[in-house]
Design a binder for these strands. Structure first.
Lengths: 258, 258
DNA sequence: CGACCTTTTGAACGTATTCAACCGATGTGG
DNA sequence: CCACATCGGTTGAATACGTTCAAAAGGTCG
């Protein structure tokens, strides 16, 4: 048995302004410019001269506690969401009740795109960690993006990114063995933590083995076994939710055909 | 051995205007209004008063012969595509050379959305059947959709639909057994043929067992075996590319947990 | 008409799943 | 504060499913 390690939990993001508070709707007027997520969030790629306009879009903040839903399948679509702090998972349920986790979302990533098609959401989105969510009314976003080409472009890009991401996941689900899937999953998390300024090699998982398995098309026991195997081989150190990546090269190699 | 059946191949769509021909660029000005794909294509959902504007977008037609690429991974993105006749497959290739078919496209469906993100296409798209493609310059589409809210809405909807479609496929790849996958695949094709006015129960596959397998995350032998099994049980009749669905109910039942 | 590609089918194999037991951490109520 | 219940995670053994390897037949296209 290896010694336990202490991995600091990811610190909370900056606390937003609370001026002009309504009842349960808190206005956060110039939030975006002080948010620190600029590089990964909506304003990214939009010129500074339009930041103000974007800030007007995010007219409402919402707190979603761990275990609560941001939205549910069948809910009427009216807004897109991003968030400063917290962690979400999204999942689909089929007619006959099978469920599949479609993604885990980190601060700055967009949620709600599944609802545009037919004005109803087709997934459930639940917080795995308390979250501060920025609500972007779709009607307003559409209106503004018609006036600000950069914003339109950015919105399209985000949707396209989601499509490309999904294709990547399909490739993983369609062609990789269990070891490759888990390795790819860990490397993906690592990269996304790094993009947010956290350690690329040490982090805490926010989800259970079962949720990982659902995401990767594996059973929870298989995920557990693969993690144990990686640990035996010295590729990672895993203690429950705490993960330390010890050999990124070998982990990457696992994603090749193996 | 059952007797061979003759399945009519899907008739070609209407032949577009060719007035105002350039060199290899053929202008097809009021193509959309006479195309017959309205219900499934770009103009769908956009008021008649704007049809003309949309027709201006499709300023170029392109012929892509069977086996030729519409675009390739890495190609610079500049346009979205739809088509009146033909059949395409799209696929991704990973760093280490594994490939995965991400979709089979029928007339009226949109191609190219994967390229918006970083101005490069991330997939290869190849014709499985000679095709007449409508090229929609992205810059123009973006410009027009800023002026025509219905068009903007419709564009967003198409991207969202692609996202939702991909999630459905992920669910299939992540949770279904071989029989369920193949059944779901056949039913999906059936539905899409029906939406285009063709028989829902009799059609010719345009793709090989290997391509089906790549799409479904199975090997070609497995696809072949499942089809044989379905045939023995009287769910379908399959003779090479010709498919006849004999029991939609039982086929649907295959997609439930089995 | 001939070469090549696609499809089918069989048999052996390997990988992930299933079922089950156990452990440890977390949280609740007495 | 401790006892207990619950949940999440690990591990083992047997099983089931899809893959791999191989051979042969049937189609298709130049």
């Amino acid at each position: 048995m290896q010694p336990a390690i202490a991995i600091r939990s990811i610190p909370s993001g900056p606390v937003p302004d609370r001026r002009g508070a309504g009842n349960n709707v808190v206005r956060v007027s110039n939030a975006c410019s002080s948010c620190g997520l600029g590089a990964v969030c909506l304003p990214c790629g939009v010129g500074n001269e339009h930041i103000e306009a974007i800030e007007q879009l995010v007219y409402q903040r919402k707190r979603v506690k761990r275990g609560e839903f941001l939205y549910r399948s069948g809910d009427r679509f009216h807004a897109l969401y991003t968030f400063r702090t917290g962690f979400f998972k999204s999942y689909m349920t089929s007619e006959d009740g099978r469920t599949h986790v479609t993604g885990f979302q980190m601060p700055g990533e967009i949620l709600g795109l599944d609802g545009i098609e037919d004005e109803r959401h087709s997934q459930d989105v639940v917080a795995l960690e308390d979250a501060e969510v920025c609500v972007i009314e779709y009607a307003q976003l559409a209106q503004l993006s018609a006036k600000v080409p950069d914003l339109q472009r950015h919105l399209h890009r985000m949707m396209s990114r989601e499509i490309v991401r999904d294709h990547g996941l399909m490739l993983l689900l369609g062609t990789m063995r269990a070891d490759g899937r888990v390795a790819a999953f860990l490397l993906n998390l690592s990269q996304r933590f790094a993009a947010r300024g956290y350690s690329a090699s040490e982090f805490n998982l926010r989800m259970t083995r079962e949720e990982i398995g659902s995401y990767l098309g594996l059973k929870l026991e298989t995920v557990s076994r693969v993690l144990s195997r990686f640990q035996e081989r010295g590729l990672i150190y895993a203690q429950n939710r705490a993960i330390r990546l010890l050999d990124l090269g070998k982990l990457k190699a696992e994603t090749f055909d193996a």
